[in-house]
């Protein structure tokens, strides 16, 4: 991990087109401003980790039961 020390108002440039700036600072929080091309997603790490965990759980589950819910969904759309 590259570790850089920045003061309030200073920035980091990633690649040519991503800038991370320290916008505000107190003893417990850093407020970061991020400039990045619109096709690049920027997320809080805990959201990304939550997606990773959910994907791992999804990949590990037993499949057979899916038939039950598939039938239930088909019945539901018949009733609709």
């Amino acid at each position: 991990m590259l570790v850089l020390t920045r003061k309030l108002g200073e920035s980091i440039r990633i690649n040519d087109d991503i800038v991370v700036k320290v916008v505000d600072l107190d003893s417990r929080h850093v407020k970061l401003g991020i400039e990045a091309p619109r096709h690049i997603s920027v997320n809080r790490e805990e959201i990304y980790e939550r997606i990773q965990r959910e994907n791992k759980a999804a990949s590990a589950a037993q499949d057979q039961g899916l038939k039950n819910i598939a039938d239930a969904l088909k019945d539901k759309s018949k009733d609709a």
Binding site: I47, I51, N55, A61, Q62, L66, N68, I69
Partner: peptide
Amino acid sequence: TIRENPVESTANLVG
């Protein structure tokens, strides 16, 4: 995500 009780299975709408 297929759950132990399959009819309680969930889907990830954030991703």
